[in-house]
Design a protein around this nucleic acid. Sequence first.
DNA 1: TCAAGATGATCAG
DNA 2: TGATCCTCTTGAT
Length: 275
Amino acid sequence: MPEGHTLHRLANDVWDAFGGRLVQASSPQGRFVDGAALLNGHVLRQTEAHGKHFLADFEGAGWLHIHLGLIGKMDIRPAPVPEPVGQVRLRLQNATAYADLRGATVCEVITGEERDKLLGRLGPDPLRDDADPDLAWKRIHRSKLPIGQLLMNQDVLSGVGNVYRAEVLFRAKLNPMTPGNVVKKREWQGMWDDLLALMKYGVETGRIDTVADDHTPEAMGRDPRKDDHGGEVYVYRRQGQHCFVCQSVIRTKILAGRNLFWCPKCQRTGLTRKS
DNA sequence: TCAAGATGATCAG
DNA sequence: TGATCCTCTTGAT
């Protein structure tokens, strides 16, 4: 379930469970034995997230860098610490809590220099105080690629995944195939502000809810959504169903290898503009 | 019991 | 663009 808000929550949760104290690290699965040995017995000094990347500074050992990819997951639970279940790549533990990491695309120990280099190539993350939306705008403004593709490019903007991409474009009434160089500055600023609000809510609640008050299940008298991403949304994975606003059928297609969802009637803006 | 699919990203061609 | 990796859940057989 990892979009940017998940990683920021993870950074907060790992800090709450282990911050400022000695941490024991191991790799029950056996694929991160050397890395775990480097971290084992060191004090966790800082945690942070940038986009979909999680970083944790272990005093005197280096930075733990995790990217959850599509299927990765980290579960943090209170002690007692049980026997590992399944493919636990990394286990962190102390007297009061443990955290199990499974399925991550990246799990490594890097230097401070490597961490700086990594952050340097990522686009601005709306959830970070130091984020500058103009950096993303410069990339969008000069690209002919569809805005639906640019929003998912982590070098342009970091932290946005398929759900936020689909929903923020719906809320902006912008067609996903609109080329970046015909998107207007005020449209971009509107999407950035919207992302900031949606993702902050995501960090607080762990959910991606994007529907306005008059489109909630209660307001519309419909059943709440039963979906593993856990939220009420306008278009994401609603292909073949009716739009809450105009009743058109939600459409889907593959764009750059990922499923894209949009409402053909509500999201007409941008379609007829020329680059 | 098995295959498909999923909120991601990289690499080869 | 397609193949590949990572793990788990769901739905079809």
